[in-house]
Design a protein around this nucleic acid. Structure first.
Lengths: 122, 122
DNA sequence: TTGAACATTAACATTTAAGTCAGGCTGTGT
DNA sequence: ACACAGCCTGACTTAAATGTTAATGTTCAA
């Protein structure tokens, strides 16, 4: 599969795919004419890279745990799990707080509706 | 509380605190001498900003949902929940894959140990 | 065979987070 | 009074992720 299609499937730009490659996060094969040719495995790997980056990991960090990126459960995944856990902590904290806020808003809305109901039913 | 202590509590640098301020993510009061004075609410807010940034949000995104940052469940939190959900998707995907890999490794280890056990018990 | 669509590389630009350093004020203990 | 630690601002710097553009090659269909 060539670049355009791969980028579309991954919902990222071709530029980013090239970026991953230049940063040494993945190696992509070429066809005779020199065009990049993405295998299914390449797609999966690129998808993981995309997710890592979207989650705030730098290319350096990602490179450091490239064992996590290949399909085969190869290496010891150099601290990948721990770092992900850290990220999760950040996210969980935020989510908890946001949920609280959402509940407050919902409560307010409910109170308002009750108030209206009371008024209109009187 | 002044800058140094605040930074220590949040486990970030003073530079980052100043950065948050300059980016318009938070406003910090000053004492008579011009020193920044961080209130408990400021600390909480800065902590949230830190978490958002560590989770891959840009200052622009954070600014856009600043309603999510104040202590009071004020605004409608401009898409904050949805974006967080997206981040969670990324993380969840990665976590699932990493867990799979970890399991593979664990299985291999177990197999190895079994093998050894079998051998040694023979 | 010409043009549209897609590919390539390379170079330049922008934005953001964060480090670092310089020059100067403040506050406190001796 | 002095030193020392902490604060301030501002500017320079770096690294990363992307965007953008330009110049050029390839494929394919009309």
């Amino acid at each position: 599969m060539q670049a355009k299609e791969a980028a579309e499937k991954l919902q990222i730009t071709q530029r980013m795919l090239r970026h991953y490659e230049k940063e040494g996060l993945m190696a992509v094969g070429r066809t005779l004419n020199g065009y990049r040719s993405y295998s299914a495995a390449d797609l999966r790997r690129a998808g993981r890279i995309r997710d890592f980056i979207a989650t705030g990991f730098s290319t350096r960090e990602i490179r450091a745990m490239s064992a996590c990126l290949s399909d085969e459960g190869s290496g010891p995944c150099e601290g990948g799990v721990e770092k992900l856990r850290e990220k999760l902590e950040h996210i969980d904290r935020l989510r908890a707080e946001l949920d609280d806020k959402r509940n407050v808003v919902i409560d307010k809305l409910a109170a308002l509706q009750n108030g209206l109901a009371t008024v209109s039913s009187r």
